[in-house]
Design a protein around this nucleic acid. Sequence first.
DNA 1: CTCTGTGAAATATTTCACAGCA
DNA 2: TGCTGTGAAATATTTCACAGAG
Lengths: 232, 232
Amino acid sequence: MAEIPTAAISRLVTYLRILEHLELQDVSRTSSNDLADRAGVSAFQVRKDLAYFGRFGTRGMGYTVPILKRELVRVLGLNRSWNVVIVGMGRLGQAIANYPGASDYQFQYVGLFDVSPGVVGQQVRGLTVGHMNDLTDFTRTHAVDMGFLAVPPERAQDAAQALVDAGVKGILNFAPTVIQPRTTERPGLQDLSDEWRGVIVENVDFLAGMKRLAFYILNPHLKDAPAPEEPA
Amino acid sequence: MAEIPTAAISRLVTYLRILEHLELQDVSRTSSNDLADRAGVSAFQVRKDLAYFGRFGTRGMGYTVPILKRELVRVLGLNRSWNVVIVGMGRLGQAIANYPGASDYQFQYVGLFDVSPGVVGQQVRGLTVGHMNDLTDFTRTHAVDMGFLAVPPERAQDAAQALVDAGVKGILNFAPTVIQPRTTERPGLQDLSDEWRGVIVENVDFLAGMKRLAFYILNPHLKDAPAPEEPA
DNA sequence: CTCTGTGAAATATTTCACAGCA
DNA sequence: TGCTGTGAAATATTTCACAGAG
């Protein structure tokens, strides 16, 4: 099914970041070798990844930074705006809301939610934190594309369900737990999992990263070797 | 080189989390099917992942939760303590320092560092935030195993270099930038990259996750299909 | 009869070599 | 000549089918 490897998408995001960096430094041209070096992958890989989506370079010349950047922005779907709600406004949720860079590509935080009386009602980034119970009402008047989930793991599945009920198409899950892509344990209803059809879940799990790091420190030979060089 | 897939390690972390959950609920036995369902992968995958490291089950019976948990803890290197410093104590660094769960497996924050006068000297989690310049001195008197990097991307490479100079074996990079596993632009010195030999870098990149999510919302058919069921 | 452990087959991904265009 | 774009080869990973232990 995956005709384009998932890892390729992660790499495209990296290439885009590098192109932004080059543009800031007024570098106008680059090459698969240069991108590969900066991204820590092979030049073969860069060319193959780009080839999945089109032909963006000039043989013998390389790539024009603004053009390749524009094309990657388009490919990744960053040339439109995304309305985001954050569920869970503890320290992590607040750090996410205030992290610079999200607004670079028109990711807009339109709603912030929590259940804790200590947080509901507070102002964060110019928005008033609402109560989770108001989420569904909120989505009746606001188009919401994705939800960021920064609640404790034991509340993550229910909060994810609420997001799906509210109609979001994607969830960025920061909780250290697997979000089941189906409605679970809803008394009296057999299977409402159609709600989940087409909902994308991406995970950003810091505790998992920490544990992988521990493993690879103890087993460094199992870590992916550095990218092979292109022959000179 | 990678005789054990990197993805398998991520899945082991997930299995371990599930086992902790089962143990809390006093469930004493499980199976590759049960774990697979909870982890969102195939039962084949669970058995193969575990088989890389040993034989932990009983044929016809399944797995004993505390035993499998203990074995995964051992495999992942979580049965020892890890001394961690955090570099960058802005909102994200503080959220990381206070995030519950890190101490479950003896990950201990032993030092916190920043460069901003507004943060240096503050108390976080019972530690006084020190200045980056004091990092090397600090590591002379404290054994430090890993560093968490929560600085702005333009400072990430230098901060990573400081961590490597300080002797850490692994870096968990939260900055949206590629850490080059070599000493760059150090005037007068040709190649000190030996310092970097064996240093592991793992990335936890929330902005990248957000962009991948945007892509897959627009291209849901490219998302890895749900795990196939084991035939009944 | 059940469910694990595992070699072998099927897929997926990466690497490579080189054709092709500037 | 230089560097991209791409089919084909090489690897890596996942899936499968079934032998084997309880």
